[in-house]
Design a protein around this nucleic acid. Structure first.
Lengths: 192, 192
DNA sequence: GAAACATCTTGCCATATGACAAGTTATGCT
DNA sequence: AGCATAACTTGTCATATGGCAAGATGTTTC
């Protein structure tokens, strides 16, 4: 039998099968259309999602008022705005579906209950967040030390769905470059 | 009476005075000399520190083999390598004192005990980590959207101690630029 | 299916930053 | 103090990326 999305995502040694079942039961499956707004600037996040299919993008305005893509969320990933959800404060992010898809939603209240009831789930949460922090720091270093073309190739390799589904301008702002630069980088890569 | 460093750092609504006392008692004061190694590549972190005075730097090698300064830790900040400490895995970072100073150390085991015993401390931990993640993402955006001179001025404003105490080359790698570029940026700022 | 609009590409030139190397200043060591 | 070494500055030139504007291509709407 294949692993469920729950087993893949809530992957922690100390989580027993019955714990995993309680956790799984707290999720509700939803469908979403292209353009669906999961969260927007000024609101407080009250849930998070496990993406089963489709592609979602989050973005915010930088200090110049330009739209910056902060993340893409695809199949098998957790769609969450951590600081709004866990600090109960309004977000600066906007999270919108780039394609239609399906996901599993869990509300903050239910999460909170399980989080305090199941120590291993609590540990999982901390480990997951540690890893997010690690990856975020890694991303910073990549931005500082690798060329835009390198960064583009890395996405192409690790998350090809983004390249296929997301418009160039969103990828460009995710990479921190202008649309025209990305267009030239693509051309260069193709002709090579 | 002035706030203790514990009140400043472990600042969470639901943390009661008696909880804070248990937490404070789990810390042990230490002195450290310039060059003191808090953690090094390949080891697993077994504690974290609240810095009372002095300046500490963490760094790692990027994929080119160049040293990259990942963070500076000063007075009133938490010196911690989250992913090694909470995932119990070897770190890639090196953490070394740039100056002598004092700190409060808490071991992982003691932390863990309090973390599971005091729900409000657990909540504090999650909120703190959420905020770390938020700041890390903010830093990524800054790196992508602001000029090196801007980034330098931001440090000068928010953490002047770093500019005063850390060698230029460490600041340069933290900003993601070369030593000579930073030297020129400084010159430019002075002459303005 | 044509107009209106958004997206992407390309050309030209400007600018920020890097690479390398030489010189200068500061620091540490005995 | 004097040597050795590390840290910093500066010059020259190279390169990556940005800014702007014109065109080209694709998409939506009525």
């Amino acid at each position: 039998m294949t692993k469920s999305i729950f087993e893949k995502i809530y992957n922690h040694l100390a989580l027993r099968k019955e714990d995993l079942d309680s956790i799984a039961n707290a999720h509700e499956q939803i469908d979403f259309q292209k353009g669906h707004v999961f969260l927007e600037n000024g609101k407080v996040a009250n849930e998070y999602y496990l993406i089963q299919s489709g592609l979602v993008r989050s973005w915010l305005y930088d200090y110049n008022g330009d739209e910056i893509t902060t993340e893409f969320y695809g199949d098998g990933e957790i769609l969450i705005e951590v600081s709004s959800l866990f600090q109960r404060i309004p977000t600066k992010e906007n999270i919108v579906a780039l394609t239609a898809g399906t996901a599993l939603r869990i509300d903050f209240d239910k999460f909170q209950e399980l989080y305090h009831k199941i120590p291993a789930f609590n540990e999982w949460g901390r480990a997951w967040m540690s890893n997010q922090l690690f990856m975020s720091k890694q991303r910073t270093i990549d931005m500082l030390t690798r060329s835009a073309a390198d960064r583009y190739l890395a996405i192409l390799k690790h998350k090809p769905l983004i390249i296929k589904e997301a418009p160039l301008k969103h990828i460009a702002s995710y990479l921190g470059i202008t649309n025209s630069s990305l267009s030239r980088i693509r051309k260069e890569i193709f002709s090579a």
